[in-house]
C-alpha cells in the first residue's frame, strides 16, 4: 500500500516535471501573437488593475485593446481591492492603475515617503461626489433640491432600518465619504445605511426608482447609471477653504476630483512604449460613461465595448498613440 503510494507520488512528480519543462511555451506563444498584431516587439508584459466600478473597467479595456493591438504589449488584468493595490504597485505586482480617487493618506506613504509609486498624469475624467435624489422627487417637491429642504423632510425618507430618522443610502464603505460628518455638522436627522458596494447600491436605487419611492443617496460622476435614470443633485453648502480639513467636522460639498493615473516607479523607468501610452491616455466623462453603459446596461463584454468605442473614436485613440515609437 505504502509502496503504491510512493509510486504514485513519483508519477505525479514526473508529470509535474514535464509540465515545468513546457511551462515557458504558452506565455511566449501569447507574446508572439500580440507582437504580430502591432509591430513593436519591445513592449513586453504589463499589469493593470481594474477597480470595482464600471468606469474603471471601461478605462482598463480600452487601454488594453490599444496596448495589445497597436503596441504589441501583453496586458494582464488584476482585480485587487482599492487599498491593497497600493502595496501591489509598490512591489511591482501591478504596473498601472488608471483611475485613482486621491487617497491622501496612501499618497503620502507610497508616493511621497517610499517613492515606489508615481503619478502618471490626469485621466481627463473629473470625479464628482454628491448627494442625489431621483428627479421625480424634485419635480413633485422642488425644495428637495437643497440640503435645507432635505433636512426639513427627513420623515419622507424613513425606512424600517433607519427608524424615526431619514435614511441616507451610502455606497461602499471604502469610497471617499464625508456623509456621517456632514449629517452631524449640519444637524440633519438622518442615519447612514451602507449598501456595501456600487452594485448593491445600484440595485437599491433601481428598486426605489421603479416604485418612485423617496430616496436620498451618495452618488457620483462619471457613472453610467446617470445616463439611464434621472437624478438631481442636492445642493450642499458651498465649499470654503479648509471646510473639510477636519474629517469629523465637514460642513460643505465634496470637491471635484481630477482623477489620476498611477504607475509603479519601476514600470515608469522601464522604457517600454506602454509608459508613454499610459501617460497619454486621457478621455472625458462622456467617453467613459458611454463605454460603461455598453458594458453595464447593454451587457456587452468589456472587450467588445472597448473595441466598439475605439472604432467609433479613431481620432481620440490615435492621439494617444501619436509619437510613440512602435
Amino acid at each position: 500500500m505504502v509502496r503504491n503510494r510512493l509510486w504514485m507520488v513519483g508519477a505525479v512528480l514526473a508529470l509535474v516535471a514535464s509540465g515545468c519543462g513546457a511551462q515557458q511555451s504558452p506565455s511566449s506563444d501569447g507574446g508572439g501573437s500580440a507582437a504580430g498584431g502591432g509591430g513593436g516587439g519591445d513592449c513586453g508584459d504589463l499589469t493593470i488593475n481594474e477597480q470595482s466600478w464600471v468606469g474603471s473597467t471601461a478605462n482598463v479595456y480600452v487601454a488594453k485593446n490599444l496596448l495589445e493591438n497597436e503596441l504589441g504589449c501583453t496586458v494582464s488584468i488584476t482585480k485587487i481591492a482599492e487599498i491593497p493595490v497600493y502595496e501591489a504597485l509598490a512591489d511591482g505586482k501591478v504596473d498601472v492603475i488608471l483611475e485613482d480617487w486621491q487617497h491622501v493618506k496612501l499618497y503620502k506613504k507610497y508616493v511621497d515617503d517610499l517613492g515606489k509609486v508615481k503619478q502618471a498624469g490626469s485621466l481627463g475624467v473629473t470625479g464628482h461626489i454628491g448627494w442625489y435624489v431621483p428627479k421625480y422627487l424634485v419635480d413633485e417637491n422642488p425644495e428637495l433640491a437643497s440640503w435645507q429642504g432635505v433636512a426639513e423632510n427627513s420623515e419622507l425618507f424613513q425606512t424600517p432600518e433607519s427608524g424615526d430618522q431619514g435614511q441616507f443610502l451610502a455606497g461602499d464603505p471604502g469610497y471617499v465619504t464625508n456623509d456621517e460628518s456632514l449629517i452631524e455638522t449640519l444637524g440633519l436627522n438622518f442615519k447612514v445605511i451602507y449598501a456595501g458596494g456600487e452594485a448593491s447600491e445600484i440595485a437599491a436605487i433601481q428598486q426605489a426608482y421603479a416604485q418612485e419611492e423617496p430616496l436620498l443617496f451618495y452618488w457620483y460622476e462619471p457613472q453610467w447609471l446617470n445616463a439611464a435614470l434621472d437624478f438631481e443633485e442636492v445642493k450642499l453648502p458651498k465649499r470654503t477653504p479648509g471646510c473639510d480639513a477636519d474629517p469629523d467636522n465637514v460642513d460643505c460639498a465634496y470637491p471635484d476630483y481630477d482623477l489620476r493615473k498611477l504607475y509603479s516607479s519601476e514600470f515608469a523607468e522601464s522604457g517600454s512604449p506602454a509608459v508613454e501610452f499610459v501617460e497619454n491616455f486621457k478621455w472625458s466623462n462622456a467617453d467613459q460613461e458611454l463605454v460603461s453603459k455598453l458594458i453595464a446596461e447593454e451587457k456587452m463584454t468589456p472587450e467588445d465595448a472597448a473595441a466598439q468605442w475605439i472604432s467609433d473614436n479613431k481620432d481620440k485613440a490615435d492621439a494617444w498613440l501619436e509619437g510613440i515609437s512602435s
Binding site: 432600518e161 451602507y194 449598501a195 456595501g196 452594485a199 448593491s200 437599491a204 433601481q206 428598486q207
Partner: peptide, 13 residues
C-alpha cells in the same frame, strides 16, 4: 446579495 438587496432593501435584513 444583489438580488437580496433588491428584494429586501438595504440594511440588516
Amino acid at each position: 446579495l444583489i438580488p437580496i438587496v433588491a428584494l429586501f432593501s438595504v440594511g440588516r435584513v
